[in-house]
């Protein structure tokens, strides 16, 4: 691309410099706060290796339940690799953390940090964001384990039942499913990569799927946050049951 002929009159070069008068800092601040609180709690809970199970309920942070004698630390640190990779490379979360933590930029038309020559997602480690679809494949497999947990949460000593914990785990898995299926990469793989939607029966089927996923994709940010809250809340609930702080409410 051709070089600029000359400099603009007042480029926003310093971090935070802007002529905006609205509370542009509020959104990145809230994002940073939310991600820090939820991330820190999840990391702390993953380290505990205790109180993640109560009756038929299993915390989603410890699902699937694995036994790895060769692993000296909490199994959750292994279990959480796929979901963490999925969220870390997610197109929504990239926007969120580039703005909130990397301040690159903190908000639109606001000056940002300048750390060397900008390379975006062209160089390591950010070039790995291009492998988001593989994180999606892993997250997709994880959904089977999580729905199995929902099924198990319906059975109390061999008898069908529904407790508040069942609903909490259902909410966690349900919102995670919506978050996973609203993924931009999945939308592309399902049909977005086609140029002609009407050229074959398979293309028409994929177009139908792509159309539905496009609607879901429009809410990807909402699903990202709701599912993060729901997973965290499910762990908190199971933990408090296990510690005897709360007693589960049974509806059936």
């Amino acid at each position: 691309m051709a070089q600029r002929a000359q400099a603009a009159p007042a480029a926003t070069e310093r971090l935070g410099s802007t002529d905006r008068r609205d509370a542009w800092w509020l959104a990145p601040a809230l994002t940073a706060l939310g991600l820090t609180v939820l991330g820190a709690y999840s990391f702390w809970a993953a380290l505990q290796n205790a109180h993640y199970e109560f009756g038929p309920y299993l915390s989603p942070l410890y699902s699937p339940k694995v036994v790895a004698p060769w692993w000296p630390l909490s199994p959750a640190l292994l279990i959480l690799i796929p979901p963490v990779l999925f969220r870390a490379t997610c197109y929504y979360y990239r926007k969120a953390y580039y703005r909130a933590f990397f301040l690159d930029p903190p908000a639109c038309a606001v000056g940002e940090l300048h750390l060397g020559k900008y390379a975006g997602e062209r160089k390591f480690p950010f070039v790995l964001q291009n492998l988001h679809r593989f994180a999606f494949y892993l997250a997709f497999v994880w959904l089977f384990f999580l729905w199995h947990d929902v099924w198990k949460a319906l059975w109390f000593d061999g008898r069908f039942g529904i407790g508040l914990g069942t609903l909490v785990i259902l909410a966690s898995t349900g919102t995670l499913t919506l978050y996973t299926f609203s993924c931009h990469s999945f939308r592309h793989l399902a049909g977005g990569g086609l140029d002609c939607f009407s050229c074959s029966a398979a293309a028409r089927t994929r177009h139908g799927l792509w159309t539905k996923l496009t609607v879901l994709n429009g809410h990807h940010m909402g699903f990202a946050w709701i599912s993060f809250f729901a997973v965290t809340f499910a762990d908190v609930y199971v933990r408090l049951l296990s510690l005897g702080v709360l007693h589960d409410v049974r509806f059936l």
Partner: peptide, 17 residues
Amino acid sequence: DEAGIGLCNITKCCTEV
């Protein structure tokens, strides 16, 4: 290589304006 799409870090300001 030429349009440099990898430089976009999808912070969505373009969509906002």
